[in-house]
Design a protein around this nucleic acid. Sequence first.
DNA 1: CCCAGAACTAGAACCGGTTACAGTTCTGCC
DNA 2: GGCAGAACTGTAACCGGTTCTAGTTCTGGG
Lengths: 196, 196
Amino acid sequence: MTETAGDQLTKSQAARRERAIRAALELGAEGGYDAVQMRDVAHRADIALGTLYRYFSGKDHLLAAALVEWATDLEQRVNVRPPKGESTADRVVDILRRATRAMEKEPLLSSAVVRALSTGDPQVSQCQEDVSSVMFRIQARAYPDDFPAAVRDRISRALGHVWFSSLMGWVNGWVGIGEAGDELASAAHLMLDQYE
Amino acid sequence: MTETAGDQLTKSQAARRERAIRAALELGAEGGYDAVQMRDVAHRADIALGTLYRYFSGKDHLLAAALVEWATDLEQRVNVRPPKGESTADRVVDILRRATRAMEKEPLLSSAVVRALSTGDPQVSQCQEDVSSVMFRIQARAYPDDFPAAVRDRISRALGHVWFSSLMGWVNGWVGIGEAGDELASAAHLMLDQYE
DNA sequence: CCCAGAACTAGAACCGGTTACAGTTCTGCC
DNA sequence: GGCAGAACTGTAACCGGTTCTAGTTCTGGG
């Protein structure tokens, strides 16, 4: 139910779902969280409000599902163009910064989806998990093959936390996007430089 | 306006503010975020709804202000009973776990205040900053006097992120409280063991 | 082709955060 | 004491997320 295609949905159903997510992304990019109004999404996607609620448990689930799609797209792009950097820390930071840059281009949308992610709805949690595992997989590509996997996983999780928290700080206006990237880089070096 | 007393408030005004926060804490502890209804808070605190909105910019600001008070109380207690542990990492983890344990006792309330913290309202951001700086100060007490301050600050910020993100994961049901503590410990060791 | 049940639609209704407003009470100042 | 203005009260209204309902359309099995 998260988004991982094919869940035995009719063609027209998959299309409805797609239109709903696209409408949410558009409205979110134009005016942020508040502008994503369920009535508007339904209207723009040309489906009934009740149907929208059949596909998504609520506004936050809709936005979270949109983020999952976004993250998946990012993974594709990273796979095409691998991370650059001398040290492992640099490559990890490069990857996470790239993810952040994508969000930087759509600040209103980013703030909307991140805000949606931080709600307790179980359906949303599922999406959060999907996003986490994508970020986790993406990071793994920055490590050399002979890097101990156990340590790598612990570091990835910790950096995932720092990334998420920094992102939260950015979309909520606690810090600028630059500081967010700096915090990330600082943490990456604190953990990785000792293994160079 | 965050909460730092004295802002030239009448005695009766300070009392109103106090009653409002207490009411919010009570309702939050009983039923979580949804149970903190502005009409109820106003009624329980014996103030008019409009007045409540004169003191707090919205529901989230009210809850965030309540969290600031909570964090400040925690700081007092930590100052009384300093952190225990052999290594610096252990002491830092001890401190952060203690903070987490306090929240563990009021899961519904914790989830309510954390959820409130993650909104973009500027007033809320101010509260978030207050809480951050409290956590930052608290952590500093776990380090030996001769620990390089610059590194300590970077580590504190990174661990603050991990703490916040883990907390978010817990209140939103992504992970159990135990895992949250473990993630924290793992990150602390990744960064601190190299300085033992 | 036909039917039962699921899915969909339009629209009203409910609920709670937030705002607006008219009237009352408090506060500082003369 | 008396006054102006700020603060407070009670209540109604507004808005948007969510739920509900009655009627319509689609889908798969016989």
